[in-house]
Nucleic acid binder design. Structure first.
Lengths: 199, 199
DNA sequence: GTCTATATTCGGATAGAC
DNA sequence: GTCTATCCGAATATAGAC
């Protein structure tokens, strides 16, 4: 990977292309987005785009997938020093609200495109989500009896938050049902902290 | 809508087209699927397809969306006469396992395509999911103190199951993490039944 | 209802000049 | 690195014969 330096305050063209492609793929889907359209929005020609991504559209997809997968874990900021299970979960839930529509759009897109990705591309997400789960489990660990239970609780919390986001933000259920993320978490978290390992 | 009768055991061609389109849209996405390909699989020409759907591909999408939205609620079969909150949830969870990859694939596809649908098309799903939530809430209602709490619990249960399905089946986390739907529910349900309205 | 044939537009991709 | 010009295949859609 070549150094992606900035020249005089503007990000270089290659990065701009990736950025633009990410937006368009997320909004329209991979196949529905044409190289032509990306080039237009970037402000260059298709030929220029093929200079940066020799293998064409597919290489661009690759780059988009590899890019900005990192800060998924930033969701946990500040949760490390929570003093109770309840506080830890609340802290994570707060961060979830900040994820915002931008990242959610990309998530939604990948969800739809996932089964068509190659094994290597899939592995990227598996790794990223496992890391995410692992960090949540670590944050919860001090307040439960076993690693095993921390892991389960982390999956449940992850899945519930994920499901809420998709139902209410992605499928726009918020337009027809009154249940804010805050209310959701206010109801869920007390339930999740109510018990230790299997009764 | 004209009568979709069968002629001598075979479903009529219009229905066959919808069925085929549903499969292809789910697998490849709307834009990635060509009218040509649908016609080939159906075993007719594009022209024949345009006879059945005068407004072309978009009309086909419409038909696919309107079709088979019903039996979402069949998930609740047998849960009506549960004798405890725990039993009711378990019963619903069991049915979820039966939904199978076919419906899940369509769900996944719609999730990705949703934000590009028209308001009328979106309304179809809002209605369907609200009905789903409402039925779950009704099943849970006898075992909790208020309609309000039944509603919240139903959303949580819905979102958690939804999130599990997408994470483990759709994003194929089952390949890299050991957490079966059974284990998930075995852990979640006891937590959800542990308390009544806000403490 | 279904076909053949065709119009037309748009897609990804490349060659070669600058 | 970026452009102009171009190739070619595939897409949606329609006309008109049977």
């Amino acid at each position: 990977m070549p150094d992606s330096h900035r020249d005089s305050g503007r990000i270089n063209r290659r990065d701009l292309i990736i950025e633009t492609a990410t937006r368009l793929f997320s909004e329209q889907g991979y196949t529905a987005t044409s190289v032509r359209q990306i080039a237009e929005l970037v402000g260059c020609t298709e030929a220029a785009l093929y200079y940066h991504f020799k293998d064409g559209k597919r290489a661009l997809l690759q780059a988009v997938l590899e890019c900005e997968m990192p800060k998924l874990t930033s969701i946990i900021n500040g949760s490390e020093n929570a003093t109770s299970l309840q506080a830890a979960m609340k802290s994570i839930a707060m961060q979830m609200d900040v994820v915002g529509p931008e990242r959610m759009a990309k998530m939604r897109w990948i969800l739809g495109e996932f089964h068509r990705l190659s094994d290597e591309e899939k592995a990227l997400f598996h790794e990223s989500h496992l890391r995410m789960h692992h960090i949540i489990a670590q944050v919860l660990r001090p307040f439960v009896d076993s690693d095993e239970y921390a892991s389960r609780l982390a999956w449940i919390f992850f899945a519930a938050g994920f499901g809420y986001g998709l139902l209410f933000w992605n499928l726009e259920m918020q337009d027809v049902a009154n249940f804010s993320l805050h209310e959701f978490m206010e109801t869920l978290i007390p339930l999740l902290v109510s018990r230790q390992p299997t009764p």
